[in-house]
Computed example of a mutant assay.
Amino acid sequence: MTRIGSRTTGRPTLAEVARLSGVSPITASRALRGVSTVAPELVEKVQVAASTLGYIANPAARALASAQSQSVVVLIPSLSNHLFIDTLEAIHEVMRPRGLEVLIGNYHYDQTEEENLIRNYLAYQPCGILLTGFDRTEAAQRMLSASAVPCVHMMEVSSAEGVISVGFSQRDAGRAAAQHLLARGRRRLGFIAAQLDPRVMQRAEGFRQALAEAGLQAPELELLAPEPSSIGLGGELFSQLITEHPDLDGIFFCNDDLAQGAIFQALRQGIAVPERVAMVGFNDLPTSAHLVPRLTSIRTPRAAVGRCAAQALLAVLDGKKGLQQAQDLGFELVVREST
């Protein structure tokens, strides 16, 4: 009777898959990882053999043998935000043809949780890490530096030497929102924000700067809530701000779901948008173009950020020289009926 499986675990091995499919172990490994250079007919043979044997790859053993896994870690602060879903999809599209496994860590906007994820994922010896922004604990920064694992930062850009980043200026985006409302003749401008992560606060800084330059800064018209951003919260915050400051005539929201909730609440309260108060959102989520009125918003290049960040990481792994350290992909102000 032919014995199948390793001596230690009894599970089918890669060598057995290779033997059954008639290819070398290296080719079998590449085929199972989806490396695009393997001929389709060989991929099919290897997949059939793996299925017949019930083979499951052991990434820990692969990492131990090579001192590095075939995994890329992506750390994001939220899986409920459409922004990061689009980014993750784009990352997968770039990494999949290279046979790289994408490990996703969601730290819920909690730096301590992100630090723990970094500690745990570094134990798997990933070949690269995609990080969101630059704000993390000192312990996390030390671990990343000591690991020497290539890192690419997403959603923000930095001019710091040796830092690879792909994103856009959050401050410029906030500034653009204020300038648009001012160009529409609005003078009592409010800012409504939730979650209050570093990128939200950068948008707030840009917004405030534009108002200060126009001599119209009004701190009393800012409403900042630490809770997660949502449509319901947007309605509540709008109602509170417009009640306390009935002369308000324009608002910038840190995220579209808050603005969407404000539009619904304005309809309930009989407040005309944009006649009484103009509204600008951020991220241009899919539903924003279908509200009544349609929402003016800052469109962010979320998919492009994921794609370019993944490509930048692959370029580092391939040892390419002369890489662009900071890629500013910009943003677009999409003007609709709410302003």
Rank of each mutant, 00 (worst) to 15 (best):
E220M: 12
L216I: 14
S239W: 01
N255G: 10
A225P: 04
I242P: 01
F253W: 06
L233P: 01
G261N: 04
L216R: 12
L221W: 07
A259Y: 00
L241D: 02
L241T: 04
P228M: 13
Q217N: 15
G261T: 07
E236C: 00
P228C: 10
D249C: 08
I251N: 02
S229K: 06
E227R: 15
A262I: 08
A225I: 04
C254W: 01
G234I: 03
D256W: 01
S229N: 09
E236P: 00
Q217M: 15
D256K: 04
D249N: 15
I251Q: 02
A212T: 15
F253H: 04
I263S: 01
H245F: 12
I231A: 09
P219T: 11
L241E: 01
D257Q: 11
S230P: 08
L248Q: 01
L248Y: 02
P246G: 11
L237F: 05
L211R: 07
I263Q: 02
A225L: 10
G232N: 13
C254Y: 00
L211K: 06
L233A: 07
L237G: 02
Q260N: 07
F252C: 05
A212P: 06
S230V: 11
G235D: 07
G250P: 00
Q265Y: 02
Q240L: 11
F264E: 10
F253E: 02
L223M: 13
A225Q: 12
L221M: 12
G215W: 13
A214R: 11
E236I: 07
C254Q: 04
E222S: 12
A262T: 06
F264D: 08
P246S: 14
Q240M: 12
L237H: 02
I242L: 07
P226N: 14
L211I: 13
E220G: 13
S239P: 02
Q265C: 05
E213F: 14
L224E: 08
A212E: 15
D249M: 09
I263H: 00
H245A: 09
G215D: 13
D257I: 06
P219E: 10
I251V: 15
A214E: 11
G235V: 06
P226M: 13
S239M: 03
E244D: 12
S229C: 11
L233G: 03
E236N: 09
N255Q: 13
A218L: 10
A212L: 15
I263P: 03
D256Q: 07
I231F: 10
E227N: 15
Q260G: 10
L233Y: 05
H245R: 09
Q240R: 14
D249Q: 10
Q240S: 10
Q217W: 14
P246F: 03
E236T: 11
L216Y: 09
I263G: 00
A262R: 01
N255D: 14
L223E: 08
L258R: 03
A262Q: 07
A210F: 06
P228I: 08
A214G: 11
F238M: 06
Q240F: 05
I263T: 06
D257H: 05
G235Q: 02
